[in-house]
């Protein structure tokens, strides 16, 4: 089984700062996403699974519609596997209602007038994200026990929580520890990949202009997100 831990907004500098050994594996580094004009989640994951720059195509759908993208298995590298399991990946098996609600609440937060209201919305928003995280964690752990030759788990918690709380160091630290523990439970060939990282704006978080990768296989240097499709296809199936 080959496993991809797809973590939205996993920030290289925080992986270093909190020394997340399981997320780092033997080789790790930053991905190069400079070819994209903006580090947009949907654009980056679509490019990842197709192995080609999908910016134009996704952006053309418009900011609202792009979140509904659902690529065909045949257009992605997943088709090279007999029995792949793809959990919650944007542009493929994205759980739209959940993430739509998150984005809606983000807007409520910024639209809210009083501090009190903002505080309440933040708490509710965080709870929503954490709840979903626990659900995905469960689903992912079940999948690892299953009869799949490829499992991809997409974890959005670092991004969703990060946008409103990136300046809250202990909250981020706890999340990174949790993600690190998840990586530690995987006993298969593992690739950790993020679409982009995150940088701090006061208490908030903005996307940074590089992503994160790690593997035990070999040093990838400063790869592009579109390099992974071919690379993963070529990993010899052990066992």
């Amino acid at each position: 089984m080959i496993v991809v831990l797809a973590i939205d907004a996993l920030e290289y500098t925080l992986v270093e700062e909190f020394n997340c050994k399981n997320l780092k594996q033997r080789f790790y580094g930053k991905t190069n996403i400079k070819e994209f004009s903006e580090p947009k989640t949907m654009v980056l994951w679509s490019s990842f699974m197709t192995g080609k720059n999908m910016e134009k195509e996704i952006v053309a759908r418009g900011d609202k519609e792009m979140w509904n993208t659902e690529l065909d298995m045949e257009d992605t590298f997943f088709r090279s596997f007999k029995n792949p399991k793809i959990i919650d990946l944007p542009g493929f098996s994205y759980i739209k209602e959940q993430h739509e609600q998150e984005r809606r609440m983000l807007k409520y937060y910024f639209d809210a007038q009083s501090e009190e209201e903002k505080k309440n919305i933040r708490t509710e928003y965080n709870n929503l994200a954490f709840l979903h995280h626990r659900r995905i964690k469960q689903e992912f752990s079940t999948a690892l026990q299953g009869d799949y030759d490829f499992v991809l788990g997409y974890f959005s918690v670092a991004d969703v929580i990060g946008h409103l709380n990136f300046g809250n160091g202990s909250m981020m630290k706890l999340i990174y520890r949790d993600l690190d523990e998840i990586a530690g439970t995987i006993n298969h060939t593992l690739i950790v990949l993020s679409d982009h990282g995150m940088e701090r704006v006061g208490i908030f978080g903005d996307h940074s202009n590089y992503g994160f990768w790690s593997t035990d296989l070999k040093d990838l240097g400063n790869p592009k997100i579109t390099d992974f499709a071919d690379m993963i296809k070529e990993i010899p199936e052990v066992n």
């Binding site: 949907m42 910024f110 208490i203 908030f204």
Partner: peptide
């Protein structure tokens, strides 16, 4: 709280809009 957060909020809103979140 009177000043800095307002600025950061405004900046963040703008960025999130650019990223298609809102």
């Amino acid at each position: 709280s009177g000043r800095a957060q307002d600025k950061e909020r405004a900046y963040m809103m703008q960025k999130l809009r650019a990223l298609g979140y809102m």
